[in-house]
């Protein structure tokens, strides 16, 4: 994979996620349901790149998402930490590596459905981490059930948006310089 292409696309999608995603948010009684653009890139790379690259890219994207999220704590403080999303994205990347040999990787619908699969893994990790943290340093207003519902809605929304955006993204495959499917297929489960 060409890392500079990945860096540019990650920069653009992260910029969109922190600014433009709110425009696309759907208000619900659980909070804003908004698409995850960085997840789209993680899944796109996760479906096509070499296993080792997938893990590094997932880690990098997870760290970036962690660093663009500051959590308000119940005691009035703030928390910016590297970990929950980084862990989640790495686990999500690993899940993708396990299932990608069973799907048509270049199909937009695959990107959408895999966003659901990887997204579930990521969100479960994030919710688990903050639920454990709630025992000794709770985030303001944290409720696991509420978060699981809101994040599930966001994932469905992201999958729909992701399916549509996967069409232009799949066209960028040659620019990313991914290895051929045969190559990644041979090493599908080893990283």
């Amino acid at each position: 994979m060409r890392w500079w292409v990945f860096a540019i696309v990650a920069y653009v999608l992260l910029g969109i996620e922190v600014s433009l995603a709110d425009l696309m948010a759907i208000e619900s009684k659980f909070g804003p349901v908004q698409p995850r653009f960085v997840l789209l890139l993680a899944v796109f790379v996760g479906l096509a790149a070499a296993p080792r690259v997938v893990m590094i890219a997932s880690l990098a994207l997870g760290i970036l998402v962690d660093l663009t999220t500051t959590w308000p704590l119940a005691d009035g403080g703030a928390l910016t930490l590297i970990g929950p999303c980084a862990l989640g994205y790495v686990i999500g990347g690993y899940v993708l590596l396990q299932v990608r040999s069973m799907v048509f990787r270049q199909h937009p619908l695959t990107v959408g459905s895999m966003m659901l699969v990887a997204g579930v893994a990521i969100e479960l990790i994030v919710v688990a981490v903050f639920t454990i943290r709630a025992w000794y340093e709770p985030v303001a207003g944290w409720s696991s059930t509420h978060e699981l519902v809101l994040r599930s809605l966001s994932l469905f929304y992201s999958a729909v948006i992701g399916t549509m955006l996967a069409v232009p993204l799949c066209a960028l495959t040659p620019v990313f310089g991914f290895p051929s499917l045969k190559q990644t297929g041979q090493r599908g489960r080893r990283w």
């Binding site: 660093l67 663009t68 703030a78 930490l81 970990g83 790495v90 981490v129």
Partner: peptide
């Protein structure tokens, strides 16, 4: 991954690296 797991559970007073990195990003 083990380091990230530990980092995820650190109390906020130990996450001194967070704010400057967040500011940079």
């Amino acid at each position: 991954l083990a380091a990230l797991s530990v980092s995820s559970l650190l109390k906020s007073k130990y996450c001194v690296y967070g704010p400057p990195l967040r500011n940079a990003v």
